[in-house]
Structures are given as structure tokens and as C-alpha cells.
């Protein structure tokens, strides 16, 4: 099995999603970027946009309203202001 990356999507009020996924597409403040497993440590601000989670060939979208993301080789933590499906 291919490597997975751990995604934590949290809003101030709750933990929205915590899952092992294949890849994440993040709307960065200075441009969108994708995160795969074993990504270099990285921290970025987010703009309002869509966060796409890819897992087992399926994708899931979340509307974010800004926030920031913290990428480590083990996983991604997205701290979003508000999260909608």
C-alpha cells in the first residue's frame, strides 16, 4: 500500500475531519498547492477557497474561509476559520 498522510481539519469550534488520506489540495494565500505524503515541513496562510481531499480515488471538498496550514512529513493540520462542505 502506498504511503498515506494524516490530515487534521480543525475549525475553532470542532475537529471536522481526522483521517488518513492520499493527497490534499490546499488553497494557499500565495497560490494553491498540493500535499503528498513526506512533504517537507511547510507553513502557509490560506485564502478563502476549496480544500480537496483525495483518498482511494475519491475526492471530497471543503469550503474554507481562510486560516492556515501546517505541513510536516507525517501529516497536514489545517486550521480553518470556518468550514463548510
Amino acid at each position: 500500500m502506498a504511503d498515506k498522510l494524516k490530515l487534521d481539519l480543525v475549525s475553532p469550534e470542532r475537529l471536522v475531519l481526522s483521517a488518513e488520506v492520499d493527497a490534499v489540495q490546499v488553497p494557499g494565500a500565495e497560490g494553491d498547492f498540493g500535499v503528498l505524503p513526506k512533504h517537507a515541513p511547510f507553513m502557509a496562510m490560506l485564502r478563502a477557497g476549496t480544500l480537496t481531499v483525495e483518498n482511494d480515488g475519491k475526492t471530497q471538498d471543503f469550503e474554507l474561509d481562510g486560516g492556515f496550514v501546517d505541513v510536516t512529513p507525517e501529516g497536514v493540520t489545517v486550521l480553518a476559520e470556518t468550514v463548510g462542505d
Binding site: G28, A29, E30, A40, P41, F42, M43, A44, M45, F68, P73
Partner: peptide
């Protein structure tokens, strides 16, 4: 352990 990349700059974040 690893050099962190920041986007935008550290201060701005």
C-alpha cells in the same frame, strides 16, 4: 529537525 518553509514570510504569518 528540518528547516521549515514559510509562505508568506514568518513575520507576516
Amino acid at each position: 529537525g528540518a528547516a521549515y518553509d514559510y509562505e508568506p514570510e514568518e513575520n507576516e504569518i
